[in-house]
Amino acid sequence: MPGTDAMRRLTVQGDDRPLWSGHDRFQDALAALVLRAVARHGAALAAYVPDFGAGVERTLSALRSLPDGPVTVIHGDLVPPNIHVDAAGRPVAVLDFGFCTTAGDPAFEAAVTAAIWDMYGPYAEEHTEELTRLFAHEFGYARATLTAYQAAYALATHDVFGADDGDGHFRWCVRQLRRNAVFRA
């Protein structure tokens, strides 16, 4: 489903302005969101993530260099509880729009889904790796594109539930950034 102008006017969780405000490309809008999130509480992340400033710059550069592509509806929170299935296991509905619902690059949706499908399980890192590999192969996305979007998601959402290591999502973002190939290149 194509992204619409109305979708471009939506805000995303943790931010107070429409994501696309002042931007014509999703990648540039996302880079601006990352900058706003880092300005809010980046110092808290920097205390836990080595070479934080350089990693932010590498992520921003990667986002800005991504090619234009299709702009579709993105959900931004595709996890098992948000996908309802019928008795045969076929998806029939998606719930809980709003966390990061906007118009955007479908590769962002794939990247985020791969990273958050099993955020807190004992095999979360392995599942992220396998889903990222699978989505790159099945959908033809460049691995570096998915990795850049995963770093951007961690940077943009690190403080939505709490801005220190007392929050599980914050700790998850720290782990993501510490192992993200674009961020720590």
Rank of each mutant, 00 (worst) to 15 (best):
A103K: 08
A124R: 12
R36C: 07
D164N: 14
M1W: 08
G14C: 08
M119E: 08
G76Q: 10
A107F: 06
V71H: 01
G14H: 08
Y123K: 15
A62W: 03
T101H: 05
A54Y: 00
D28V: 10
G162V: 04
L155N: 01
G89Y: 11
E126L: 14
A148F: 07
H23D: 10
A148K: 02
Q13T: 13
D68E: 15
V12W: 12
R17L: 14
G42S: 03
V38A: 04
Y120C: 01
A6C: 00
R36L: 11
A46D: 06
A32L: 02
Y123D: 15
L35S: 14
A163N: 12
H84T: 11
A43L: 04
D77L: 00
R178D: 03
P122V: 10
A154P: 02
R58S: 04
A163F: 04
D5G: 07
F183K: 01
L78E: 06
A185S: 13
D105P: 06
F26W: 14
R178H: 00
A110E: 09
E126G: 11
L35E: 15
Y48W: 07
G3T: 06
R175D: 14
C100T: 10
D15E: 14
V92Q: 12
L131C: 06
Q150K: 07
A37P: 08
R25V: 09
T157C: 07
H158M: 07
F97P: 06
T113V: 05
T128L: 02
G140E: 05
E138S: 08
H137Q: 14
N180Q: 04
T4N: 05
G55S: 02
T101F: 13
D96K: 09
L35V: 14
C100R: 10
L60C: 04
L134R: 14
P81M: 05
A144S: 15
G69E: 09
D159A: 15
A107K: 04
E138L: 12
C173P: 02
G55P: 01
A88V: 12
R40L: 09
P67H: 11
R17G: 11
G168H: 08
T11C: 12
G3W: 05
T113Q: 12
Y153E: 08
I116C: 01
R178W: 00
L146A: 02
E125M: 06
A31F: 06
L19P: 11
C173G: 03
W20C: 12
E57P: 00
T4V: 06
A136F: 04
F26S: 00
L35C: 11
G53K: 03
G162Y: 02
R8K: 15
L177A: 02
P81E: 13
R133L: 11
L95S: 10
F135N: 05
F99Y: 11
A163E: 13
